[in-house]
Design a protein around this nucleic acid. Structure first.
Lengths: 148, 148
DNA sequence: GGAGAATTGTTCATGAATGAACAGTGTGTG
DNA sequence: CACACACTGTTCATTCATGAACAATTCTCC
Protein backbone atom coordinates (compact mmCIF):
# COMPACT_ATOMS: atom_id res chain seq x y z
CA UNK A 1 0.00 0.00 0.00
CA UNK A 2 2.95 1.56 0.50
CA UNK A 3 0.49 3.07 0.96
CA UNK A 4 -2.00 3.20 -1.70
CA UNK A 5 -3.29 0.66 -3.93
CA UNK A 6 0.27 1.27 -3.93
CA UNK A 7 2.45 -1.49 -4.39
CA UNK A 8 2.17 -2.59 -7.90
CA UNK A 9 5.00 -4.89 -8.63
CA UNK A 10 4.20 -8.39 -9.42
CA UNK A 11 2.89 -10.19 -12.36
CA UNK A 12 3.90 -13.62 -13.14
CA UNK A 13 1.61 -16.41 -12.35
CA UNK A 14 2.84 -17.70 -9.07
CA UNK A 15 1.15 -18.02 -5.75
CA UNK A 16 3.36 -15.28 -4.44
CA UNK A 17 1.88 -12.81 -6.84
CA UNK A 18 -1.58 -13.90 -5.79
CA UNK A 19 -0.72 -12.90 -2.26
CA UNK A 20 0.58 -9.61 -3.49
CA UNK A 21 -2.46 -8.89 -5.60
CA UNK A 22 -4.79 -9.70 -2.75
CA UNK A 23 -2.93 -7.31 -0.48
CA UNK A 24 -3.01 -4.54 -3.06
CA UNK A 25 -6.67 -5.11 -3.62
CA UNK A 26 -7.44 -4.86 0.07
CA UNK A 27 -5.35 -1.75 0.55
CA UNK A 28 -6.90 -0.15 -2.50
CA UNK A 29 -10.41 -0.77 -1.28
CA UNK A 30 -9.67 0.67 2.13
CA UNK A 31 -7.91 3.72 0.79
CA UNK A 32 -10.72 4.51 -1.57
CA UNK A 33 -13.17 4.38 1.30
CA UNK A 34 -10.85 6.50 3.40
CA UNK A 35 -10.77 9.30 0.85
CA UNK A 36 -13.63 11.37 2.28
CA UNK A 37 -11.93 11.40 5.68
CA UNK A 38 -8.81 12.99 4.21
CA UNK A 39 -6.66 10.30 5.76
CA UNK A 40 -4.34 7.92 3.96
CA UNK A 41 -3.71 4.44 5.31
CA UNK A 42 -0.29 5.37 6.72
CA UNK A 43 -1.76 8.37 8.46
CA UNK A 44 -4.61 6.33 9.87
CA UNK A 45 -2.10 3.83 11.09
CA UNK A 46 -0.23 6.50 13.04
CA UNK A 47 -3.40 7.79 14.64
CA UNK A 48 -4.42 4.26 15.50
CA UNK A 49 -1.19 3.68 17.37
CA UNK A 50 -1.67 6.89 19.30
CA UNK A 51 -5.26 6.09 20.17
CA UNK A 52 -4.45 2.55 21.22
CA UNK A 53 -1.56 3.70 23.35
CA UNK A 54 -3.85 6.17 25.08
CA UNK A 55 -0.97 8.60 25.57
CA UNK A 56 1.57 10.56 23.54
CA UNK A 57 4.25 8.33 22.03
CA UNK A 58 7.89 9.05 21.27
CA UNK A 59 8.53 8.95 17.52
CA UNK A 60 10.83 6.00 17.96
CA UNK A 61 7.95 4.04 19.48
CA UNK A 62 5.82 4.86 16.48
CA UNK A 63 8.56 3.69 14.15
CA UNK A 64 8.80 0.46 16.08
CA UNK A 65 5.09 -0.23 16.09
CA UNK A 66 4.80 0.52 12.38
CA UNK A 67 7.93 -1.41 11.55
CA UNK A 68 9.29 1.36 9.41
CA UNK A 69 12.28 3.70 9.30
CA UNK A 70 12.53 6.54 11.79
CA UNK A 71 12.95 9.05 9.01
CA UNK A 72 9.61 8.00 7.64
CA UNK A 73 7.92 8.80 10.92
CA UNK A 74 9.53 12.21 11.06
CA UNK A 75 7.90 13.04 7.76
CA UNK A 76 4.58 11.40 8.48
CA UNK A 77 4.31 13.33 11.73
CA UNK A 78 5.30 16.50 9.87
CA UNK A 79 2.32 16.01 7.59
CA UNK A 80 -0.05 15.05 10.38
CA UNK A 81 1.06 18.10 12.31
CA UNK A 82 0.46 20.28 9.25
CA UNK A 83 -3.02 18.76 9.06
CA UNK A 84 -3.54 19.67 12.70
CA UNK A 85 -4.20 16.07 13.69
CA UNK A 86 -1.16 15.56 15.84
CA UNK A 87 1.08 17.75 18.01
CA UNK A 88 4.76 17.30 18.81
CA UNK A 89 5.60 17.78 22.44
CA UNK A 90 8.98 17.66 24.17
CA UNK A 91 9.64 15.00 26.75
CA UNK A 92 10.86 16.61 29.97
CA UNK A 93 12.41 13.34 31.11
CA UNK A 94 14.59 12.86 28.05
CA UNK A 95 15.45 15.90 26.03
CA UNK A 96 16.35 13.83 22.97
CA UNK A 97 12.87 12.49 22.74
CA UNK A 98 9.85 14.03 21.02
CA UNK A 99 6.38 12.70 21.65
CA UNK A 100 3.48 12.82 19.24
CA UNK A 101 0.11 13.61 20.80
CA UNK A 102 -3.18 13.27 18.96
CA UNK A 103 -5.35 16.41 18.85
CA UNK A 104 -9.11 16.75 19.10
CA UNK A 105 -9.31 17.05 15.31
CA UNK A 106 -7.05 14.03 15.05
CA UNK A 107 -9.37 11.99 17.20
CA UNK A 108 -12.39 13.02 15.17
CA UNK A 109 -10.64 12.08 11.92
CA UNK A 110 -9.50 8.81 13.46
CA UNK A 111 -13.00 7.84 14.48
CA UNK A 112 -14.48 8.38 11.05
CA UNK A 113 -11.59 6.65 9.33
CA UNK A 114 -11.53 3.68 11.68
CA UNK A 115 -15.22 3.17 11.08
CA UNK A 116 -14.71 3.28 7.31
CA UNK A 117 -11.86 0.81 7.58
CA UNK A 118 -13.91 -1.63 9.62
CA UNK A 119 -16.73 -1.47 7.13
CA UNK A 120 -14.47 -2.41 4.24
CA UNK A 121 -12.85 -5.16 6.24
CA UNK A 122 -16.20 -6.59 7.13
CA UNK A 123 -17.27 -6.50 3.51
CA UNK A 124 -14.15 -8.29 2.40
CA UNK A 125 -14.25 -10.89 5.12
CA UNK A 126 -17.84 -11.66 4.28
CA UNK A 127 -16.48 -13.59 1.30
CA UNK A 128 -15.03 -16.15 3.68
CA UNK A 129 -16.54 -18.27 6.41
CA UNK A 130 -14.89 -18.07 9.84
CA UNK A 131 -13.32 -21.46 9.22
CA UNK A 132 -11.88 -20.36 5.95
CA UNK A 133 -10.58 -17.19 7.55
CA UNK A 134 -8.78 -19.18 10.18
CA UNK A 135 -7.35 -21.51 7.59
CA UNK A 136 -6.16 -18.63 5.43
CA UNK A 137 -4.48 -16.94 8.37
CA UNK A 138 -2.72 -20.17 9.26
CA UNK A 139 -1.46 -20.68 5.73
CA UNK A 140 -0.16 -17.14 5.47
CA UNK A 141 1.59 -17.44 8.78
CA UNK A 142 3.69 -20.25 7.40
CA UNK A 143 5.54 -17.95 5.07
CA UNK A 144 6.94 -16.10 8.00
CA UNK A 145 8.20 -19.14 9.81
CA UNK A 146 11.82 -19.02 8.87
CA UNK A 147 13.97 -22.05 8.92
CA UNK A 148 16.80 -19.95 7.57
CA UNK B 1 6.17 -3.09 -3.01
CA UNK B 2 6.59 0.17 -3.76
CA UNK B 3 8.50 -0.98 -4.03
CA UNK B 4 10.65 -2.48 -1.44
CA UNK B 5 10.01 -4.39 1.60
CA UNK B 6 8.12 -1.41 0.90
CA UNK B 7 4.69 -1.09 1.92
CA UNK B 8 4.58 -0.95 5.60
CA UNK B 9 1.12 0.12 6.52
CA UNK B 10 -0.94 -2.24 8.47
CA UNK B 11 -1.04 -3.31 12.01
CA UNK B 12 -4.16 -4.25 13.72
CA UNK B 13 -4.95 -7.82 14.29
CA UNK B 14 -7.21 -8.73 11.45
CA UNK B 15 -6.86 -11.24 8.72
CA UNK B 16 -6.41 -8.45 6.27
CA UNK B 17 -3.25 -7.36 7.96
CA UNK B 18 -2.02 -10.92 7.87
CA UNK B 19 -2.35 -10.84 4.11
CA UNK B 20 -0.52 -7.56 4.02
CA UNK B 21 2.28 -8.77 6.24
CA UNK B 22 2.73 -11.90 4.18
CA UNK B 23 2.99 -9.82 1.02
CA UNK B 24 5.53 -7.48 2.57
CA UNK B 25 7.51 -10.38 3.82
CA UNK B 26 7.64 -11.99 0.41
CA UNK B 27 8.56 -8.75 -1.32
CA UNK B 28 11.23 -8.05 1.26
CA UNK B 29 12.82 -11.45 0.82
CA UNK B 30 12.91 -11.11 -2.92
CA UNK B 31 14.30 -7.61 -2.87
CA UNK B 32 17.05 -8.52 -0.48
CA UNK B 33 18.07 -11.35 -2.79
CA UNK B 34 17.88 -9.04 -5.77
CA UNK B 35 20.33 -6.57 -4.28
CA UNK B 36 23.51 -7.96 -5.86
CA UNK B 37 21.92 -7.72 -9.29
CA UNK B 38 21.36 -4.00 -8.88
CA UNK B 39 17.70 -4.41 -9.79
CA UNK B 40 14.71 -3.47 -7.68
CA UNK B 41 11.48 -5.42 -7.95
CA UNK B 42 9.76 -2.75 -10.05
CA UNK B 43 12.71 -2.63 -12.42
CA UNK B 44 12.76 -6.41 -12.69
CA UNK B 45 9.08 -6.32 -13.41
CA UNK B 46 9.59 -3.96 -16.34
CA UNK B 47 12.35 -6.10 -17.79
CA UNK B 48 10.21 -9.19 -17.34
CA UNK B 49 7.42 -7.66 -19.38
CA UNK B 50 9.84 -6.76 -22.14
CA UNK B 51 11.41 -10.21 -22.18
CA UNK B 52 8.06 -11.96 -22.19
CA UNK B 53 6.76 -9.76 -24.96
CA UNK B 54 9.81 -10.62 -27.03
CA UNK B 55 9.74 -7.19 -28.64
CA UNK B 56 9.91 -3.49 -27.73
CA UNK B 57 6.75 -2.30 -26.01
CA UNK B 58 5.06 1.11 -26.02
CA UNK B 59 5.18 2.69 -22.58
CA UNK B 60 1.41 2.60 -22.38
CA UNK B 61 1.53 -1.17 -22.79
CA UNK B 62 3.98 -1.40 -19.92
CA UNK B 63 1.71 0.71 -17.75
CA UNK B 64 -1.20 -1.56 -18.59
CA UNK B 65 0.66 -4.77 -17.87
CA UNK B 66 1.98 -3.43 -14.58
CA UNK B 67 -1.36 -1.93 -13.65
CA UNK B 68 0.20 1.37 -12.71
CA UNK B 69 0.08 5.01 -13.78
CA UNK B 70 1.71 6.08 -17.02
CA UNK B 71 3.75 8.69 -15.23
CA UNK B 72 5.29 5.98 -13.13
CA UNK B 73 6.46 4.16 -16.24
CA UNK B 74 7.98 7.30 -17.67
CA UNK B 75 10.16 7.59 -14.59
CA UNK B 76 10.91 3.90 -14.28
CA UNK B 77 12.05 3.80 -17.90
CA UNK B 78 14.09 6.95 -17.28
CA UNK B 79 15.98 5.13 -14.56
CA UNK B 80 16.34 1.92 -16.54
CA UNK B 81 17.65 3.92 -19.47
CA UNK B 82 20.13 5.67 -17.18
CA UNK B 83 21.25 2.22 -16.05
CA UNK B 84 21.69 1.23 -19.69
CA UNK B 85 19.25 -1.66 -19.37
CA UNK B 86 16.58 -0.31 -21.68
CA UNK B 87 16.48 1.98 -24.71
CA UNK B 88 13.67 4.27 -25.84
CA UNK B 89 12.93 4.05 -29.52
CA UNK B 90 10.44 6.03 -31.58
CA UNK B 91 7.61 4.23 -33.29
CA UNK B 92 7.59 5.11 -36.99
CA UNK B 93 3.95 4.03 -37.33
CA UNK B 94 2.66 6.36 -34.61
CA UNK B 95 4.70 9.36 -33.72
CA UNK B 96 3.00 9.76 -30.35
CA UNK B 97 4.27 6.40 -29.23
CA UNK B 98 7.61 5.55 -27.65
CA UNK B 99 8.73 1.95 -27.31
CA UNK B 100 11.04 0.57 -24.65
CA UNK B 101 13.55 -2.00 -25.89
CA UNK B 102 15.68 -4.12 -23.60
CA UNK B 103 19.44 -3.91 -24.16
CA UNK B 104 22.08 -6.63 -23.96
CA UNK B 105 23.00 -5.44 -20.48
CA UNK B 106 19.34 -5.41 -19.62
CA UNK B 107 18.94 -8.99 -20.67
CA UNK B 108 21.97 -10.04 -18.63
CA UNK B 109 20.63 -8.28 -15.56
CA UNK B 110 17.21 -9.79 -16.13
CA UNK B 111 18.56 -13.30 -16.30
CA UNK B 112 20.44 -13.05 -13.04
CA UNK B 113 17.54 -11.33 -11.29
CA UNK B 114 14.90 -13.73 -12.57
CA UNK B 115 17.00 -16.62 -11.31
CA UNK B 116 17.30 -15.01 -7.88
CA UNK B 117 13.59 -14.38 -7.77
CA UNK B 118 12.75 -17.97 -8.63
CA UNK B 119 15.06 -19.22 -5.93
CA UNK B 120 13.37 -17.18 -3.26
CA UNK B 121 9.94 -18.15 -4.48
CA UNK B 122 10.87 -21.80 -4.40
CA UNK B 123 12.19 -21.42 -0.87
CA UNK B 124 9.02 -19.76 0.30
CA UNK B 125 6.71 -22.18 -1.41
CA UNK B 126 8.57 -25.06 0.14
CA UNK B 127 6.71 -24.24 3.35
CA UNK B 128 3.48 -25.38 1.73
CA UNK B 129 2.42 -28.60 0.07
CA UNK B 130 1.00 -28.32 -3.45
CA UNK B 131 -2.46 -28.91 -2.03
CA UNK B 132 -2.06 -26.14 0.46
CA UNK B 133 -0.76 -23.84 -2.24
CA UNK B 134 -3.82 -24.47 -4.33
CA UNK B 135 -6.08 -23.92 -1.36
CA UNK B 136 -4.35 -20.67 -0.45
CA UNK B 137 -4.60 -19.38 -3.98
CA UNK B 138 -8.29 -20.19 -4.07
CA UNK B 139 -8.95 -18.41 -0.78
CA UNK B 140 -7.08 -15.31 -1.85
CA UNK B 141 -8.91 -15.21 -5.11
CA UNK B 142 -12.18 -14.83 -3.25
CA UNK B 143 -11.26 -11.37 -2.10
CA UNK B 144 -11.19 -10.18 -5.65
CA UNK B 145 -14.56 -11.57 -6.59
CA UNK B 146 -16.65 -8.50 -6.24
CA UNK B 147 -20.33 -8.64 -5.67
CA UNK B 148 -20.36 -4.88 -5.45
C1' DG C 1 34.06 13.11 36.55
C1' DG C 2 34.98 12.46 31.84
C1' DA C 3 35.74 9.79 27.52
C1' DG C 4 33.56 6.85 24.55
C1' DA C 5 29.44 4.50 23.15
C1' DA C 6 24.59 4.29 22.42
C1' DT C 7 20.12 6.43 21.52
C1' DT C 8 16.82 9.99 19.50
C1' DG C 9 15.14 12.58 16.07
C1' DT C 10 16.24 15.38 11.81
C1' DT C 11 18.07 16.11 7.25
C1' DC C 12 19.24 14.74 2.72
C1' DA C 13 19.33 12.05 -1.51
C1' DT C 14 16.91 8.63 -3.80
C1' DG C 15 13.26 5.30 -5.41
C1' DA C 16 8.62 4.28 -6.30
C1' DA C 17 3.83 5.50 -6.73
C1' DT C 18 -0.21 8.73 -7.75
C1' DG C 19 -3.06 12.23 -10.23
C1' DA C 20 -3.57 16.56 -12.73
C1' DA C 21 -2.28 19.33 -16.47
C1' DC C 22 -0.14 19.63 -20.85
C1' DA C 23 1.79 19.17 -25.76
C1' DG C 24 1.78 16.45 -29.89
C1' DT C 25 -0.38 13.22 -32.75
C1' DG C 26 -3.92 10.55 -34.63
C1' DT C 27 -9.14 9.92 -35.87
C1' DG C 28 -13.15 10.58 -36.55
C1' DT C 29 -17.68 13.20 -38.40
C1' DG C 30 -20.09 16.66 -40.15
C1' DC D 1 -11.23 19.90 -45.12
C1' DA D 2 -11.50 21.23 -40.49
C1' DC D 3 -13.03 20.86 -35.89
C1' DA D 4 -13.67 18.25 -32.02
C1' DC D 5 -12.30 14.35 -29.61
C1' DA D 6 -9.28 10.68 -28.12
C1' DC D 7 -4.77 8.88 -27.18
C1' DT D 8 0.40 8.95 -25.90
C1' DG D 9 3.94 10.23 -23.23
C1' DT D 10 6.05 13.95 -20.24
C1' DT D 11 6.15 17.17 -16.45
C1' DC D 12 5.04 18.64 -11.92
C1' DA D 13 3.62 18.50 -7.14
C1' DT D 14 2.82 15.35 -3.56
C1' DT D 15 2.97 11.09 -0.64
C1' DC D 16 5.34 7.36 1.35
C1' DA D 17 9.33 4.61 1.99
C1' DT D 18 14.47 3.74 2.60
C1' DG D 19 19.30 4.37 4.34
C1' DA D 20 23.27 7.26 5.47
C1' DA D 21 25.11 11.03 7.96
C1' DC D 22 24.55 14.17 11.67
C1' DA D 23 23.64 16.88 16.18
C1' DA D 24 22.07 16.61 20.64
C1' DT D 25 21.51 14.09 24.57
C1' DT D 26 21.95 10.26 27.76
C1' DC D 27 24.37 6.23 29.49
C1' DT D 28 28.47 3.41 30.95
C1' DC D 29 32.31 2.46 33.02
C1' DC D 30 36.93 3.13 34.26
Amino acid sequence: MNNSPSATVCRGRTLLTAVWRAASHIAGRIERRLEPTGLSLPKLQMLTHLVEAGEPLPLGQLAGRSACAKSNITQLVDRLEADGLVRREPDPEDRRSVRAAITKDGLRAYEAAARAQSEVEAELLASLSPDEQQHLAALLERFREERV
